[in-house]
Design a protein around this nucleic acid. Structure first.
Lengths: 356, 356
DNA sequence: CTGAAAGCGCTAACAA
DNA sequence: TTGTTAGCGCTTTCAG
């Protein structure tokens, strides 16, 4: 009582009626037919080679070569509910901060045939819902956020999607799912203590105004104030804010403004190495000696930091490792292994060089 | 004579046998049922809202809200042969050169609900086939290459996949499909002429050894030699090569080596602004005045270029526009419009600042 | 404007 | 080790 005859697919006029096939694509069916096996055997020969006979495997491989077949991962993903896709959400591609993490993530995932799709959220929390929709719609096997999710709605949506989520570049006690990062709030106090130990009496912070940078800056200013080494009267007045997309020039002009305001300044914590580079340039232009007159500490330990003049003292975070671990966590989850440590603190360290 | 009864989907024990449904996902069926319409009407309410009645549209939207439905784009892509995915192949994510292009591409595509997947090819042409397989397997609606494809096999594979391809960041007369870029070979002569006009008598080039940088460098050295303004005796000896992943420090040490070898040097063309930054640093350390003793020209016009000391004279290419145009080209193709200009030369320009 | 039927190309489940 | 069957969730085709 079969309704459709599937064998004998040779051009029977009756079956020619409806074909939605994309332009001449070779399908697994074609390969199987050519190899003289069933489609599922061909499928297994590709995806689980050790489960089919050597004979079958070779015939399938030959057929693949002959036809130039490329498996349709869309179809495979739909059938198996595994897309081998991981989505990464980043505020912006511009800026070197997250690049290393994405690079490491991409490489780790590529090892096992996974790919990365990217979504840009922007720093302004807008469109975020739309972006999440587009991402969840692809049914990725994992989602990596650079930074923690902001909106409550977004968090609920992510939590409810049944997709492993790794938040990175931050540390909070209750992530949506998993987390690999470090505490921005802990960095400020350590840098403040470091600068005091270096003999600074009047420090300030020059920071981008994106959320995480602000937390580093504020924790720094508060700690410095508690240590009574702020250049301004209050913690707040010892902060100078920069628009989120910083550059050398922005840092430079920002320091100029800061220095005009607090000329007795003898130490500055910058929200990034790029900003610090600007500070170094402006300090030099103003005849300030670093570190004698002014101690400078950056953040990020970017590639150029050791080569600046003087070499930049900075806060190092292991962007690479965060990406790799994020990939590991997701892959473990996908493999069904229970992840016992859902929170990974990769920490940070102050790299002492010449500038402070 | 129907073989399967599809109506009455209420829990009939017989139909419980096989369910491969992923964990409790809401499907379009569920939404349609709740809205009291057929699945196809629900589909249209989502994708072609103006083709259904206002009544139906609203009921579907309400059902979507109630259920938290997110369309499965995997299934949609498979059925429609349109994945709304564009793949971009980049040598490496590290390095700011291509980022702006990818950023612009991503933004342009996001406007129309497309997403970008990234593949890293590495500079060594290895694994390229594997990568192409992974990409083509996703059936993206377009592929953007940063740089032209290298291997003949890869070119054939791309050409045969029936997917719009845009090569970028280069200019060749016979691209696989479409191209938006500029001629690296034309840059060298222009920079050489520029430096001669600036009074340089003995110039050299400090370049990364990746393919496109090499072409800029060689065309520069050849032109300079023809103008009789090379620092070395030959065009070749006026080139200093750096490993492809450059940094400020690499540039700096590279210039030191170059200067040791050719101490009479009075002008240098760098393969990137980053390298140029290193040259500026090393020149300063050696007491060379820029531009009086040494003219320096960079490439890329990165964000920091105008803020260096002195401001960097550099070759500007519109990375942003390349990304936007690449997106436009693909979208046009996808829409079935014939693209008349398959080759777009965005050109380049020399931005004169203080360093040369 | 709406719907029934029939796949898109692949793999999970079950059986042999 | 191999095959049969029945979907995965959506959209196209064709017909109201």
């Amino acid at each position: 009582m079969k309704s459709r005859v599937k064998t004998q697919p040779s051009a029977s006029p009756a079956s020619t009626r409806k074909s939605r096939r994309a332009h001449g694509g070779v399908t697994l069916q074609d390969v199987a037919r050519l190899a003289g096996v069933s489609p599922i055997t061909a499928s297994r020969a590709i995806n689980q080679p050790d489960v089919v006979s050597e004979d079958a495997r070779e015939r399938v491989q030959r057929a693949i070569r002959q036809t130039g077949y490329t498996p349709n991962l869309l179809a495979g993903s739909l059938a198996s509910s595994r897309s081998r896709l991981v989505a990464v959400v980043v505020p912006t591609l511009t800026g070197p901060m997250f690049m290393e993490t994405i690079q490491a993530l991409t490489e780790r995932l590529a090892e096992v045939g996974y790919q990365v799709i990217i979504g840009q959220s922007g720093y302004d929390n807008a469109r975020e819902d739309e972006l999440l929709n587009a991402i969840i719609g692809r049914r990725p096997d994992g989602i990596v956020l650079t930074g923690v999710a902001h909106s409550a709605k977004g968090r609920v949506r992510l939590a409810g999607a049944g997709i492993p989520v790794v938040e990175t570049w931050d540390f909070i006690p209750t992530p949506i799912d998993m987390l690999v990062g470090f505490s921005h709030d802990s960095i400020g106090p350590e840098v403040a203590a470091f600068l005091r130990q270096r003999g600074c009496k009047r420090v300030a912070v020059l920071s981008a105004d994106d959320e995480r940078a602000v937390r580093r800056a504020k924790s720094f200013a508060a700690a410095a104030h508690a240590l009574r080494i702020t250049a301004g009267k209050t913690a707040n007045s010892s902060c100078e804010w920069l628009p989120a997309l910083t550059s050398l020039g922005v840092g430079r002009r920002g320091f100029a403004a800061l220095f005009e305001r607090l000329p007795k300044l003898d130490g500055v914590f910058c929200s990034s190495d790029v900003v610090a580079q600007g500070v170094l340039a402006e300090a030099q232009a103003r005849g300030l000696r670093v570190p004698e007159d002014l101690a400078v500490v950056g953040f990020g330990d970017l590639a150029f930091a050791p080569d600046l003049h003087p070499p930049l003292t900075t806060v190092r975070v292991d962007a690479n490792e965060m990406g790799r671990i994020a990939g590991d966590l997701i892959l473990k989850r996908v493999a069904g292994e229970s992840v016992k440590t859902r929170l990974v603190d990769v920490g940070f360290s102050i790299v002492e060089r010449g500038s402070a």
